[in-house]
Design a protein around this nucleic acid. Structure first.
Lengths: 237, 237
DNA sequence: TTGATAATTTATCGATTGATCATTTTGAGA
DNA sequence: TCTCAAAATGATCAATCGATAAATTATCAA
C-alpha cells in the first residue's frame, strides 16, 4: 500500500524543478525527524518521497545540513512579535491579555512536529532551543510580571534579584503551557476537551495568586542582595 | 588518556564474578543512555568499561533487554510512598507541606540520568513514562487540590468535571518543578542559586491563587456537565 | 598439579548506514 | 527534430551497527 502509493506518486510526474523538489524533501524530512527523533535514515526518507536516496545529496550537502534547514523551518517562522505588543495594552484586564496570549502561543506550539523536534534537538544539542527560549526570557517574561503588578499599582523594582524572581515565577507558569505539548506529543496522553476553559482557569489562579503575594514576594527577595563572598568561603577555596 | 585509563582499569583486575560485572555494565549503560539518548553503540559502552563488546551479550540477551533494565533501575526505585502521607497531614499549613513535598520531589528527579532518560525514552516510546506518571495522577494531584481547598473550608465535589479541573490546575503547577530538570539537563541553562526560595515563592503564588479562585472555579466547572451529543452532531456523523 | 567451569576475547557475519561515482533519463529551447 | 543542461538513478564504497561462534584465559576445587 505504502510502496504502491509511492510508486503511483512517482509515475505521475518524475521530473521536478529544483525548488519544488527541495521543498518536498524538506517537508517530508520535517515529518521524519518529528517521528524518528534524530536517527531517521536517508533511505527511508527517499523511499517515502518516492525518489532515490542519492538524489537527496543533490539538494543538501549532507544529512547535517538537511537537519539544520529543518530547525530553521520549524522554529524561526513561528515567533509573533505582536504578542508582546498586545500583552502591554493596559486598556484591557491583564487576565484577558494573558489568556489571549497564551491561547495564541499554545496554538502555535501545540504542533506535533514543533514539539517533538524541539525536544529531540535539545536532547542532542541544546544550542538551537536556547536560542529560541532567549526571546521569551528577555522580552515576554519580564513583561508579564510587570503587567500583573501594574494592575494593582505595584511598581516592580529593577534589581537583579527581583528580575530573577520574576523570571522564575513567570517561567514556572509559562512552562505549564509548553508542557501541554509535551503531554500530547511526547507522553501521548489526552488533553482536556475544554482546553480554553482550563487555560483561563490557570491564568486566573496565577494572576490572583501573584497579585495577592507580589508585595510580600518583592520585599522577601529584595532583602537578600548578595554582599560579597564570606571569609570562610574564601579560605576554603 | 581515555584509552589509557580504560586499559589501566582493566589491568587492575580482569576477571570479575558475574553479579559485579553486571552491576558495572548497568551503571555505565545508564550514564551512556543519559548522554547518547537512545542510540549509544555497544562498542562504545564496552570500550568505556574496558571490556570486549561481545561480553555484554553474556549478561544481557540483547541491547533492548539492557535498556529495559535501565528503565527499571532509574524509575522504579525513586518513588517515595511517604510523600502522599505527609501531604495529607492537616496539622501543618498546606503551603509548608507543599513546599516540603516539592523540595523532596525536585531533589529526587533533579538528576541528569533521571531527566534525560525519562525524556529520551518517552520520545521513543511513551509507555514507560506514562506508567510512572500514573502514580502522580491518581494519588498526588487530586490530593493536593483537596488539601488546598480543605484549608479554607472548601469541599471539593467528586464529579468528573471537577476532577478534571483539579487534575489540570495541579498538573500545570506541578509540571513547573519537573521542568526545572528539563531546563538544567536538557536545555542546559542555569538554575537559580536560591532554588528553595524560588520554590517557596511558586508555592505561595499557587496556594494563594487557588484559594482565592477555588470557589468560583468549582462553580464555573460544575455548570458545564455534558448532557448528550446534540442532534446536529449526530446528524453530521 | 590437574581438570572442569566460568569469564573473557578474537574473529567474523550480515545488515544498514551516509556518501560518491558514472550513467541514464527527461524536458525545454533552438 | 535535435541538443544539451538539469534531474534522477543504479552501483558501490567504507564505516559502523548488533549479534554469534569459536578459541583463550583465569579461577578454584579436588
Amino acid at each position: 500500500m505504502n510502496a504502491a502509493s509511492a510508486k503511483a506518486k512517482r509515475s505521475v510526474k518524475e521530473y521536478l524543478d529544483a525548488s519544488e523538489r527541495e521543498r518536498r524533501i524538506l517537508e517530508a524530512a520535517i515529518a521524519f525527524v518529528a517521528d524518528r527523533g534524530l536517527s531517521f535514515s536517508t533511505r527511508e526518507l527517499a523511499d517515502h518521497l518516492g525518489i532515490s536516496q542519492p538524489l537527496l545529496y543533490r539538494y543538501f550537502a549532507n544529512k547535517e545540513a538537511l537537519v539544520e534547514r529543518i530547525y530553521d523551518e520549524v522554529y524561526l517562522k513561528r515567533w509573533n512579535p505582536q504578542w508582546n505588543v498586545n500583552l502591554a495594552d493596559r486598556s484591557r484586564p491583564v487576565s484577558d491579555r494573558l489568556t489571549e496570549y497564551l491561547s495564541d502561543y499554545t496554538r502555535t506550539i501545540l504542533d506535533e512536529h514543533w514539539i517533538r523536534i524541539f525536544i529531540a534537538s535539545a536532547l542532542e544539542d541544546p544550542k538551537i532551543s536556547r536560542r529560541y527560549l532567549k526571546m521569551l526570557h528577555e522580552t515576554t517574561f519580564p513583561l508579564i510580571f510587570e503587567e500583573v503588578g501594574a494592575e494593582i499599582g505595584v511598581e516592580v523594582p529593577k534589581t537583579d534579584s527581583i528580575r530573577a524572581l520574576a523570571h522564575e515565577v513567570v517561567w514556572g507558569f509559562h512552562s505549564s503551557f509548553f508542557y501541554l505539548g509535551v503531554r500530547k506529543y511526547i507522553y501521548r496522553t489526552e488533553l482536556p476537551e475544554n482546553l480554553e476553559d482550563v487555560m483561563r482557569a490557570r491564568v486566573d489562579v496565577f494572576v490572583a495568586g501573584l497579585q495577592a503575594t507580589m508585595p510580600s514576594l518583592i520585599e522577601r527577595f529584595s532583602v537578600v542582595e548578595q554582599p560579597q563572598t564570606s571569609d570562610e568561603e574564601l579560605a576554603r577555596s
